[in-house]
Amino acid sequence: MAEGPAGVIIGGWPYVITAYSITAVALALNIARLAARERKADREKESDSND
């Protein structure tokens, strides 16, 4: 990684954007997974009560 004149690390933005993006995607995927799982649980409960 390149350093600026005063020893400051420069060019870290792609890593920063990747870290925030991965966090956002992981949380969004988990929310979507829980929504799908709840729909499935509701269907199973409904079919169980119909039996």
Binding site: V8, I10, G12, Y15, A19, T23
Partner: peptide, 14 residues
């Protein structure tokens, strides 16, 4: 930006 790490230190906030 942080004095030594520059912009990459922003990862700290997450």
């Amino acid at each position: 930006p942080e004095r030594h790490m520059g912009d990459v230190q922003r990862i700290m906030y997450v």
